[in-house]
């Protein structure tokens, strides 16, 4: 363990040097390869110990100490946490590329055309063309992106679900898991619609695995009412139907939300229709009807009970057959 901690410290120091010091002027290809080898080593350490809280703690402490001493020497040093170790090569790369002292010869190596055989004698990946490969892959995604709807959301959803599954399997406290979800949500600020797609993807693929993670997500959605509301207003009909079909919890939440939307409506005499005043984004009466129909189409068994419940609500409103008096009565007639 001592040795591993020592290596961690050296690698974090290496990251700091690569990003901020003029020493990189003296780097050559060999130095570069060695640096990336150490970064890969840290990624291995991360994947080896990420599920081991005890070791993680020790390492976090070591990293804190290293960060402190580095900050003293390099004021602009950005701290490296344990989870940052998973992206150590990337951090090294970003640091290097942003370091104005980095020799162009090193940059040329990184942006060179990768050799067809990209492992050297020791079985390590060659750094030659590292950036070129990244750019190639990113560009390919951009080229194919317009042809594939939501492939990125699917991958992100799967990653999120896997992580949730891992957190739950570790027996971490629900609040920690929730905190994780909240931070992803915060990270997605400005892309809420995409976040909805991501959550939907996490709930839809693949079946029969990580049900614990999916359950957790569904419970979170029920608590996180605004999120559920957002999802139901932005997701496509197909996705909503799949979700309602796949998850009973979602179906119930969806039904509950539709009822809430209806109960929030007031009749506008000027527009001669039911309108929403409180919810944002607003849902129109015809859209609300469509949602109910969608739910019935996805789960035909729901139809009968729903109609019965709507009828009861209509009766409690006085059971008038006149438009504009009871939203339930008007919904019932729109649905039939």
């Amino acid at each position: 363990m001592e040795a591993v901690l020592k290596n961690l410290r050296s690698t974090v120091e290496l990251l700091a040097v690569a990003a901020q010091s003029g020493v990189v002027v003296q780097w050559d290809k060999q130095t570069l390869c060695r640096a990336f080898r150490w970064a890969r080593y840290c990624e291995h350490v991360f994947s080896r110990f990420q599920d081991n809280p005890a070791v993680r703690d020790i390492m976090e402490k070591q990293l804190q100490l290293t960060n402190q001493s580095l900050r003293a020497a390099l004021p602009r040093h950005s701290e490296v946490s344990f989870s940052d170790l998973s992206r150590c090569q990337h951090l090294l790369l970003v640091g290097l590329l942003n370091n104005p002292e980095l020799p162009s010869s090193i940059m040329k190596i990184l942006f060179d055309t990768p050799s067809p055989v990209n492992t050297n004698d020791e079985g390590f990946e060659d750094v030659t063309g590292l950036c070129s490969r990244i750019i190639h892959c990113k560009s390919a995604c951009k080229v194919l992106g317009p042809l594939t709807d939501g492939a990125d959301a699917e991958v992100q959803g799967a990653m999120l679900r896997e992580r949730l599954g891992a957190l739950l399997a570790q027996g971490s406290e629900p609040c920690r898991t929730e905190h994780f979800l909240e931070s992803v949500l915060q990270g997605c600020a400005g892309a809420e619609e995409h976040f909805c797609l991501l959550i939907a993807a996490a709930l839809l693929t693949p079946k029969n695995s990580e049900t614990a993670a999916q359950d957790f997500l569904l419970d979170w959605l029920q608590k996180k009412h605004s999120m559920l509301q957002h999802m139901c207003s932005v997701l496509s009909d197909t996705i909503l139907m799949d979700l309602a079909r796949e998850h009973l919890k979602f179906r119930d939440a969806y039904y509950g939300l539709l009822k809430k939307w209806a109960s929030d409506m007031e009749y506008s005499i000027n527009d001669r229709t039911w309108v929403q005043s409180s919810t944002n984004p607003t849902v129109s009466f015809p859209k609300l009807t469509e949602h109910f129909l969608l739910l019935f189409k996805a789960c035909p068994s729901v139809k009968e009970n729903t109609e019965k419940e709507l009828n009861d609500l209509k009766i409690s409103d006085g059971d008038f057959d006149v438009r504009g008096l009871s939203v339930w009565g008007d919904l019932l007639s729109a649905l039939n």
Binding site: Q50, R87, Q156, M159, V184, Q186, G187, H194, L198
Partner: peptide, 19 residues
């Protein structure tokens, strides 16, 4: 994509692997 960034950061996936 901000979502991609958020996932990479919080799920600990290196960008190369993600793309």
């Amino acid at each position: 994509s901000v979502a991609a960034q958020a996932i990479m950061k919080h799920v600990d996936v290196p960008p190369k692997e993600y793309h």
